[in-house]
Computed example of a mutant assay.
Amino acid sequence: MSITRFVTSDGLPGLLAFLSQNGRRVLVPVEKPANKRSVVFEAWKQGQPFTLEKATVPPKAAVLPQCETLLTYKKSKDPENPERVSISLEDGIRAQPTVVFACRPCDARGFAVLDRPYLEGPFADPYYKARRDQLTVFTLTCASGCNTCFCHWVGGGPTSLEGSDVLMTEVEGGYVLQAVTPGGEELLAATDLPDGAERFPQAEEARKAAWASLEPAPNIKDAPQKLAALFSNAEFWQEQTDRCLSCGACTYFCPTCYCFSITDEGEGLSEKGGRRLRSWDNCMSSLFTREASGHNPRALKAFRMRNRVSHKFSTYPENWGAFSCSGCGRCISNCPVCLDIRAIVLAALNASQATAE
């Protein structure tokens, strides 16, 4: 068994204080009371209240910020030949050591989904890689499932280890911490927390109870082929997306969506110069695929939803061997018209089967 430690509930602030040493940024779930209450990840400071609830917004921004500066540039004219312009670039990559604390297994698996295209493709993204190399993930296992979660449909579960460095499980009086990776072992070994081996059987019982609370998962292993077969069936996609508003909430709340746009801001010849930004974008937006000519290959929301669902359950699995959806359910709970991606996948399976018959 890997290294385990035990921390009492009132000892969590002390653990956070330890984790924040040596310049580490510790992101914790924080409650934001407003017209609509939410829980978001913020950098922890001594004395700051936090919660261990499932966050409304996943911690994806720890490795893929909502907006980041890729480079800055400045242009200068040759005084003797004004038509000759030179340009200087500054593209320094900076990454702060970061701990994501008390995210859920579906969020940790989200990091694993992002790793494949950003790190394992033909070219590794240096900005993403710098932050990912500096990231440590403390994951809190779920005590039970909820009506919008479906992590066990897509290869995960309430106690999944994938993407985590340390797995936390609530037991009587506190939490058992289990190291999952060498980085997690090194960090736990450096704490002064007591060994958690004696309490580990309690953690195992809690994990079994979490799995027992889940409704049986349907078999969706054929989803990639079934969705691919329906790709040209415009009637099917129109029917599934009649209620969709194309607001994009499903993508912005998703721990695995990674579409972005690149924009230049400022003027290179000005005193401040210019900068190139990478910002989150979403495939449900009608502007996402509109070309400079004005042509839009996905002018209809049905085709945009087709792209989103097919990517998660068909083309990504074809390329990487796993679904890109982690089953967190945020796209369901945050959809203003209650569109359910599970229903779309199941409808695709049934429609394909009916066609085959």
Rank of each mutant, 00 (worst) to 15 (best):
E271M: 02
A197D: 09
C254H: 08
I332E: 01
G145Y: 08
S293F: 10
E198Y: 04
R131H: 13
F288A: 15
P122C: 04
I341V: 15
I332Q: 02
E318T: 12
S314Y: 03
G145Q: 10
K312V: 06
D264N: 09
W153P: 11
N282H: 15
C250E: 06
R290S: 07
Y127G: 06
E42A: 07
V180E: 04
A43V: 11
Q353A: 14
S261R: 14
D264H: 09
P33D: 07
G273W: 03
A34Y: 00
M305W: 15
G173F: 07
D125A: 10
P33T: 04
R116Q: 15
L64P: 04
V26L: 06
D222Q: 14
G11Y: 00
T141K: 04
N296R: 06
Y127P: 01
V337P: 04
N307D: 15
A206Q: 15
C331D: 09
V345K: 04
S279M: 14
Q238I: 02
N307P: 00
F111D: 03
E42Q: 09
G23R: 05
P158Y: 09
Y252T: 15
E162N: 05
R306S: 10
F50R: 03
R243E: 14
I220S: 02
F138T: 03
L12N: 12
K208I: 08
D115F: 08
L339E: 10
V7S: 08
V40R: 09
F18W: 12
N296Q: 06
V28Q: 03
C106V: 12
L193E: 04
V57H: 08
A62P: 02
R199G: 08
L177C: 01
L89V: 13
T256K: 06
D91C: 00
L349W: 02
C103I: 06
I3H: 09
E172C: 00
A351Q: 06
S213L: 06
P182H: 04
R199V: 10
D125G: 12
A206H: 07
S310R: 12
D125Q: 11
S38P: 02
V57L: 13
A249F: 02
N233S: 05
E162V: 10
K272A: 11
C254A: 12
V63Q: 07
P79G: 01
A347Y: 05
T141C: 14
T355E: 07
A234H: 05
C67N: 13
L277A: 05
G157D: 11
L52M: 12
L27H: 03
V166P: 05
A356W: 00
C250D: 06
L300W: 10
A299T: 04
G145M: 11
P59M: 03
A223E: 01
A108I: 09
L269P: 00
L187F: 02
P194A: 13
I262E: 04
G184K: 08
D107E: 09
G329P: 12
D78W: 01
S324F: 03
A43Y: 01
V7E: 10
A143P: 01
S314G: 02
T139M: 14
G183H: 12
D281Y: 10
I93Q: 07
